[in-house]
């Protein structure tokens, strides 16, 4: 392609966008919507994933020792617990230490201050190597002689993973649907543009223009719409993310959740948006000009 043609195709492509301003607007909006939903779901999945990792790093299982065991007997179990494959660390906590921590937690609450340490049990704080196998490991710990019960924050961990899986699944379906919708809307916009210029196209064919010469302006048109959608979606995503992220950080109940700063992912998000925008734009225009060039 000659260099002077690039400018020509670009100018023709931009002209096409304004021939059907409303359709072009709709095409950009649908691209933005597609990218935003895709981006939001991906970002939620990424954040949940990060929270799982975070949770994994400070995961803690408490194994309570049977009341009838003396402190020395209780300490003796440690080697048995350590022998379980998935156990990374195992720390013995006496009931007096546990009491101290407990009272510290409920600081200032006089109701708990004078409780005798005896109501609490000796315990082991256990960390796992792989949180995914928590269920099996918990069952193994429960079988150790002298362990009365095991308290794992398994629900939290399972909850995170369920959320991640659901978000992932829903996201893929939604993304595919929206991708198809966006390509369809862009394709219709371009089809209208080709219709508006059918006489010019007929003349170009008559004087011997190649099919690619006729196609390029429409591909540029789709390209511009796709890029425009990607850029707008990127900044919208940034704003939405920071607003929601800020709200989550301020909430106590969601403090288990780690919000990754947008800036650290901006390049990645930008690349994905731009790439998808290009696919939607070019895909839409190719779909539109596929058949009308056969004459």
């Amino acid at each position: 392609m000659k260099r002077c043609n690039f400018g020509y195709f670009l100018a023709e492509g931009i002209r096409g966008i304004f021939i059907h301003g409303v359709m072009s607007f709709a095409a950009v909006v649908s691209t933005v919507a597609c990218l935003l939903i895709m981006g939001s779901f991906t970002l939620v999945a990424v954040n949940v994933g990060a929270s799982i990792v975070n949770w994994e790093q400070k995961n803690e299982i408490l194994a309570y020792v049977d009341d009838t065991l003396s402190e020395n007997d209780a300490r003796a179990i440690e080697s048995k617990i350590r022998a379980i494959p998935n156990v990374l660390e195992c720390t013995f906590i006496t009931r007096e230490q546990a009491m101290e921590n407990f009272v510290k937690d409920k600081a200032g609450d006089s109701l708990y201050r004078d409780l005798p340490a005896e109501i609490l049990r000796h315990r082991y704080s256990i960390r796992l190597e792989n949180i995914e196998d928590m269920e099996t490991t918990v069952a193994q710990i429960e079988k150790v002689q002298g362990i009365a019960s095991v308290n794992a924050l398994q629900e939290v961990s399972n909850g995170f993973m369920t959320v991640r899986n659901i978000v992932g699944g829903v996201a893929i379906i939604l993304i595919i649907v929206l991708l198809v919708v966006s390509i369809f809307v862009i394709s219709n916009t371009i089809r209208l543009a080709t219709y508006a210029r059918r006489e010019e196209i007929a003349i170009m064919k008559m004087v011997g223009a190649t099919n690619w010469f006729i196609r390029w302006p429409f591909i540029y048109e789709g390209l511009i719409l796709g890029i425009l959608g990607a850029v707008i979606a990127f900044f919208c995503q940034w704003g939405i993310y920071n607003a929601i992220g800020g709200a989550i950080s301020k909430t106590d109940t969601l403090s288990l959740f780690t919000v990754i700063p947008f800036r650290s992912m901006a390049l990645y998000v930008g690349e994905i948006f731009l790439g998808t925008g290009l696919v939607i734009g070019v895909g839409g225009s190719l779909l539109a000009i596929r058949k009308f060039l056969k004459v």
């Binding site: 000659k2 002077c4 043609n5 020509y8 010019e200 003349i203 170009m204 004087v207 011997g208 223009a209 010469f213």
Partner: peptide, 10 residues
């Protein structure tokens, strides 16, 4: 327009 369509230069 007819000349551009076949790639003629300015």
């Amino acid at each position: 327009f007819a000349m551009r369509a076949v790639g003629a230069s300015r």
